[in-house]
Structure formats: C-alpha cells, structure tokens
Amino acid sequence: MSVEVKDLSFSYGEREVLRHVSFTAEAGKFLAILGPNGVGKSTLFRCVLGLLRGYTGSIAVEGRDAAKLSTREMAKLIAYIPQSSHPAFNYSVRDIVLMGTTSGLGAFSTPRREDERRVEDALEKTGIAHLADRCFHRISGGERQLALIARALVQRAPVLMLDEPTASLDFGNQLLVLNRARELAREGYTVIQTTHNPEHSYMFADRILALAGGEVLTEGTPREVLTWDTMRALYGVDVEISSLFGDRVRVCTPESVARGEDTRA
C-alpha cells in the first residue's frame, strides 16, 4: 500500500474543495486522476505532497502518516514532477537534475561526486544525456519534462507524482512522457498523474480515479471508468465511445459530431 488516502477533506476558508476523498495508489501501478478544471485535482496533489496542511482525514505514504513527516522525510518518499518549471536563473539541465539529490544531503552540504554520478545515470536512463550541458530554459517542453523526471529519479523516492505532465506538449512528446511514466510504474514506482485526457489515461494508466466536484465519482480500471456515464458526469458532454484495436483504445467523440450534426458545411 504505497499511498493511502482516507476520507480526505479540505477547505479554503468557507469553500470546501475536497470532500471525503479516499483512494489507494499501489506500488508498480500507474494511477491517473481524471477530472475537469477546478475540481480539486491540484489541491489533492498539494495535500498528498505535504504542501498543504490543515486537511481532515488521513494520508499514509509507504505506511507512514504524512501529517507527521518533515519536509525532508516527505521528499525521500515522494518526488514531484510539476507541469512546468521556471527556475529564476539560467541553470543547465545537469544542474536542475542535480537538485534532486538535495533530500539526501545535510542542510549545510553540497552534492558529492557520488551524487553527480547518479545524475549521469538518470540522464542516460531518461535519454537526455546529450542535453546535459544545455540551458534548461532553451530546451523543448518535452525535454524539460524528461529532465524533471530525471530529477525525480535522482531523488530516489518510491512515489512519483506528475501534475498534468503532458498539458503543454505536442503529440509526440505527450506519448514519450506517458510511455516513460508507464515504464517507471513497471519498474516498481508508484506513479500518480493528473490529466485532462481520458483517452490517454485509458491507454497508459492501470487505474483511473475520476474526481467530480471535489468528490470521488468512481475509481477503477480504465475499462470500468471510461464510459458514457462517467464522461457525461465529469465533463457534461454527451460522447460516443468507440472501442478500437480489441478495446486497447477507446476514443471519445462528441455525440453531435458522431451523428453528423456538425454545423460545418
């Protein structure tokens, strides 16, 4: 039981953002969190990462109560891969990845030679070794995302949390990053990812958690979750769901388009 969230509720002042959310993310599994904008995905992420306190309910990471963990202990358990990253200074890709070693260092230390070796390994593994000396600001969005994944690997945490990693990427890079995330799950990492793309979650995730209005709408395998009912409840859109390639792929088409009611001449 890698990440276990039980009865989690959170409010910003009067506004209740999460209501009694419970789910489990297992080691070696890729969990996608699906839901429309403003549904509380980010808040949920921030709670699990320990960035937001003052929630009710419990979050256990690797069997330990997240509320009682220090920032550093938390960083040893969960690595965070943000949607985009804007360092205030011009760092090289290698510098950025090296920052992942921080949780293993004392407060007053700098990375050692051995840490730098781990960075080279992570760069190799994510296939961006050739970018190591490039400026982080000047590589493509997909390459940046891979660099942040490399940084998370260097952090040596068993849980990886990706916040809409494909949001601003082109089609090819989206597939590259999602493939990478799935491979990492196969290697034993607990991968949790928020996403706006139901079709991608269906193709790559092992389980999908659908959030609506701050509550869990449904949770299950992609086949259980990616249905007409769920899409309707999540996004308020009537869709035709087509199954392709022996149900390895499901395509959501708006019903108006599927029925030829499209207004284009």
């Binding site: 320990g50 960035l51 965070y80 990253s85 949780s103 407060a107």
Partner: peptide, 23 residues
Amino acid sequence: FALRWRLNVLSMGDDEARSMGVD
C-alpha cells in the same frame, strides 16, 4: 556560504523546493 546549495534549490520556487526536501 554553507546554505549556498539550498539557494539553488529555492530558486525553483517554493513548492518545488519543498518537494525536494528544502523547507
């Protein structure tokens, strides 16, 4: 001088710095 490495990490922004173990 001693905290100079952490200043690098802090420049990634507070949330990312915290997720890497820097308060």
